[in-house]
Design a protein around this nucleic acid. Structure first.
Lengths: 123, 123
DNA sequence: CTGTATCCGATATGATACTG
DNA sequence: CAGTATCATATCGGATACAG
């Protein structure tokens, strides 16, 4: 994402470019709830994602320093993914975003619900 | 973005899906610095964006309730875009994201700067 | 001025099959 | 188990031309 345009003035575009991918926030969310998760566990928790895309997301998160990859050369191999400190920081910000989203949802449902009496008075 | 997958568990995906587009955060940023901006002004402030994409972004932001479109049927037509209350709230969250991004940049540059002596010891 | 319509190319995604 | 390789498809972004 964010293919050619210059993020000269707006640094948030660069960070958004790292977490923006379709599944990325969900992956961060899952990892924030566990010490670590294995590739297969993530795969099972996100049934609709393909191995290719999951690998791609994890590689990008790793390259961004948000996720740590712990490869154990056992047979068969075992790989644990966990959030780095930065990943955890980002999760806090996303929680803020989440809170806003939930508040909006609540407001919307409130207006929907009491649409019989004083919806107009609400504003 | 966020094409098919179900955002069942992670509400932040839905909001990210609304601001994720390549130019969207920048548009929100510009609008947050002015009372309102006309289509041509936005176009001039973002030289590399095409009218099609700019229109698309504005339509999506309007549909999300983040941007207000004020159409004056003059000749020629005059259209003013401005942030809604929600758009302003979102901008606050993005500012938080921005702050994180800037802190990371600073940390990275710090490590780069002292790359002559104990870089290896850092890890 | 403020868009819309259309075509095109790049990129991303998904499914499948295969490997260490 | 944890990916990689490949192909097919879909969507997006960009340029251009045109319209109300």
């Amino acid at each position: 994402m964010a293919p050619t345009h210059n993020p000269n003035q707006c640094p948030m575009e660069s960070i958004l470019g790292q977490i923006m991918g379709p599944w990325t926030p969900y992956i961060l969310w899952l990892l924030s709830n566990e010490e670590s998760l294995r590739f297969g566990q993530l795969s099972a928790l996100i049934p609709d994602i393909s191995a290719k895309v999951l690998t791609d997301r994890l590689r990008k998160l790793e390259a961004s320093g948000l996720v740590h990859r712990d490869y154990q050369p056992t047979v068969p191999p075992t790989v644990y993914y966990s959030l780095t400190e930065r990943g955890a920081e980002l999760h806090d910000v996303l929680q803020g975003l989440n809170k806003v989203a939930l508040r909006w949802d609540a407001e919307d449902r409130e207006k929907q619900g009491k649409s019989d009496s004083e919806v107009i008075a609400a504003e």
